[in-house]
């Protein structure tokens, strides 16, 4: 009868100690709010009219994914609600149609250059397409070959030439996408892929720029050269593939050996039962 009493006393002294002990290790708050939203999004998301439209598409865009926020394009002060749209604080608003290429071209310098020299760029302000005609504005996604499609191109002209350009790009684009996927897989294994990633990014960027020229002959010629570059990259990636294959072989041996040892021990144990 004495024992339970003693034990109860124990509980009282141990419990608070443990509570403190376990606290710091076992608690994690949610991450939401770790990165504050700009006043632009706070206010616009709450609106009901036109003003709210850009928020959702932007959130799903490649710009949002890379931390490019409203003020990075439209200017203004994203931290001060009162002056967020004050021109004195650098607010630019939305560009006029003819200003769109220079609006986007502040960051996408090279693309702007090529675009302005192309048939598309020369028709700027005379019914020609701007950046957003094909890429959209707030909803902008990573550029893919699918941007060239009959529905989109035939808004202005016949699809024939665009189809030829797309066909010329198809194989090269496929190679680039495949190499990109492979690099991504390597990276997940802790393989240092930085140089490959940057090399491929540069190649892809040059390749996508090329398209803005809308010059089929040049695209066909340059595509061959770029395919050569990607093929060279694939060569280096193949070396890694080979090394990974060897690792798997060694891994198979290690697993097999451990299993054999386990079976051996088990059988040896059986002889003593």
């Amino acid at each position: 009868m004495k024992t339970p009493h003693r034990l109860r006393a124990n509980t009282g002294t141990v419990a608070p100690f443990l509570f403190i002990l376990t606290l710091p290790f076992l608690t994690l708050p949610p991450l939401a709010g770790a990165q504050g939203e700009s006043v632009c999004v706070q206010c616009h998301a709450a609106q009901s009219g036109r003003g709210a439209i850009p928020v959702k598409p932007w959130r799903e865009s490649i710009h949002a994914a890379n931390g490019i926020s409203c003020s990075d394009c439209h200017g203004g002060d994203p931290k001060d609600a009162a002056n967020a749209m004050n021109p004195a604080h650098g607010f630019l608003g939305a560009p006029q149609e003819v200003q769109i290429p220079s609006f986007c071209g502040r960051c996408h310098v090279g693309i702007k250059e090529d675009y302005l020299q192309s048939a598309h760029g020369r028709a700027l302000g005379k019914g020609g397409p701007t950046c957003v005609t094909c890429h959209g504005s707030h909803e902008v996604k990573k550029a893919e070959l699918e941007l060239i499609n009959e529905k989109s191109c035939s808004r202005c002209h016949s699809y024939d030439r665009a189809a030829r350009i797309k066909a010329a790009m198809q194989e090269t684009e496929g190679m680039i996408v495949a190499a990109d996927r492979k690099i991504h897989g390597f990276r997940k294994l802790g393989i240092e892929t930085d140089a490959y990633e940057k090399g491929l990014y540069s190649t892809r960027n040059r390749y996508h720029r090329l398209f803005h020229d809308v010059d089929t002959a040049r695209i066909v010629a340059e595509s061959a050269r770029i395919r050569g570059e990607v093929a060279r990259l694939n060569g280096s990636l193949g070396v890694i593939d080979e090394a990974l294959r060897k690792r798997k072989l060694a891994g198979g041996a290690a697993v097999g050996l451990a299993l054999l040892a386990g079976i051996g021990c088990y059988l040896l144990k059986k002889t003593y039962d």
Binding site: H108, V109, G110, I111, E113, E197, K198, G199, L200, Y201, S202, N205, R206, R209
Partner: peptide, 17 residues
């Protein structure tokens, strides 16, 4: 990882991307 361009006039490198 794009290749930067040399801008002779203002002696700066500009990345086209």
């Amino acid at each position: 990882g794009c290749i930067v361009q040399w801008q002779k006039e203002n002696e700066q490198f500009l990345c086209p991307c």
